[in-house]
């Protein structure tokens, strides 16, 4: 078992720390910088959808409703904690 855990740790850690050495050695042209600066937004998109529909896997609309409430709360400029709490409360109520 310990070797499974160590194996998982190694293949997770190497892709994480390799870029630290890559950026130390390489300078990127401006377009690559722009690409890398867009990665957080793209990652957010890919992480939100379609994963959000699995909050309640047999009822994908539950996650979507929670997401819609989160969008609304965030749009009104609420603090992120309140956005999170509001979405939790919504899912709680919708699944009553």
């Amino acid at each position: 078992m310990i070797w499974v855990i160590i194996g998982m740790a190694v293949v997770t850690a190497v892709p994480r720390f390799l870029p630290a050495f890559i950026v130390d050695k390489l300078n990127f042209p401006a377009w690559v910088d722009r690409w890398l600066n867009a990665i957080p937004y793209a990652a957010l998109g890919a992480l939100i959808f379609p994963g959000i529909m699995t909050v309640k896997p047999d009822a994908p609309h539950v996650g979507l409703i929670g997401g819609a409430v989160a969008i609304a709360l965030a749009w009104f400029g609420l603090n992120i904690i309140l956005v999170v709490v509001g979405a939790i409360a919504t899912v709680f109520l919708v699944t009553l």
């Binding site: 939100i48 909050v55 309640k56 997401g67 965030a74 979405a87 409360a89």
Partner: peptide
């Protein structure tokens, strides 16, 4: 019930970051 509802938390956080 609560832990299922809290399953939305990280998605809501991602949305709260993106918007």
């Amino acid at each position: 019930r609560l832990s299922q509802s809290m399953g939305i938390a990280l998605y809501a956080m991602f949305i709260g970051l993106l918007i």
